[in-house]
Amino acid sequence: MSKSSSLSSDKTLRRQPQQQRGKQRVEKILIAAAEVFAEAGFAAATIQQIADRANTAVGSIYQFFPDKLAIFNALFVEHLRLTECIEADFFAQKIDRPLDRGISEYIDAYAIYFEEPIPRCVVVQYYLQPIGGMETMMTDLPNLQSISYKRHANFYRQRNPNLSEAKSELLSEVAHNIVQGLVPNTLRRDEKYRQAIYAEIKDVLYGYLNPHIGDHLLPVSNQLMMCPDCQSDRIAKNGRQQGKQRYICRGCGRQFLDRYTQRGYPLEVRQRCLDLHAQGIGFREIERQTGVDCNTVINWVKSLELKSVEIEA
């Protein structure tokens, strides 16, 4: 994502570190800056404080960054790169995993990520304490957000092919804003509060998205197969039987088919056979007319007669 952003490194770094030692120094400076910005705020933070935290000289920082704004924008670039990794990992997962599990894993990934100093600093500073001058260096950010919305919208349409493009993009934008609206303030509170908010976000997203992309709307070929005994989703294909896919549960060992044909004759066929018998037609003739084995018809008649006797008694 950062490759297409206006926040490219040539606008934040005075010079690119060529050696591994230089790259490690820049990384150390960025982490130190994130911690200082988070503690003191961007306006109050100084280059000297960042240098002290990074255990380096002020001149070493100026070798790479012209000012604090350049440092913060470098942090933003790194934030975009890391969030792209989270997004890529999410979309690499199976499309048919249960919606509640997918939402939970998605939010948990970000919850862990935001415990790190760089994303915590960037999100809190950008959303709650805007920095003057940033807007001129982030002209491409709306386009990046639009790309993210469309990616999630496409994911929604894969889960529900009947979902329109316009509706899926609206769902995606609202879901994003739910997260972006709650997370920044959450990061300034204690861990217990953060975990409570993350749990609420999961519930809100599931309630909002389930009617549109819930498991019941998955295409038949993508619906998650569950074991009928232990309800495990650890299912593997196990050959075919009479044209139907057979599965085996890796949890309990139960073997089953993807679908079952209803056994027995429809009620209307049974009633027709009984009506023909009541008209005095023989069992063999009923078999020829209906295709139902005469022995089956005999059993139906006996069963009916037995019920009649029980009722009279």
Rank of each mutant, 00 (worst) to 15 (best):
Q125V: 14
A38G: 13
I112D: 11
A88T: 15
A175F: 02
A111Y: 01
N73I: 10
V297Y: 04
H152S: 02
H152Q: 08
S232Y: 06
G41L: 03
K94P: 15
N73A: 05
K68A: 04
E287L: 07
L69A: 01
I118D: 00
Q271H: 02
L128V: 04
Y106V: 05
F90A: 13
E84R: 13
Q158D: 05
G239R: 15
R53M: 09
Q63D: 09
V124C: 11
A175N: 03
I201P: 08
M225E: 15
K167R: 11
S308D: 14
L69V: 04
A51I: 07
C252N: 06
A199V: 01
A109E: 05
D96F: 12
A74H: 02
R272W: 02
S148C: 09
R246W: 11
G207W: 02
K192G: 13
I286G: 04
A313W: 05
T296D: 00
Q24A: 06
L224H: 08
P161D: 03
Q195M: 10
T12S: 02
V183E: 12
P161M: 03
F64K: 02
R14A: 02
R263K: 12
C249I: 01
Q125L: 10
R53H: 11
C121E: 08
V292D: 05
G243F: 13
E27K: 14
Y156V: 12
P228C: 05
G132F: 14
S146H: 11
Q145N: 10
Y149V: 00
S164E: 08
T139F: 00
N185K: 15
I213M: 12
V179H: 10
A44E: 14
S232M: 05
F283C: 06
Q231M: 05
Q19C: 12
H216L: 14
M138C: 11
G214W: 04
N162F: 09
P130L: 08
S6W: 04
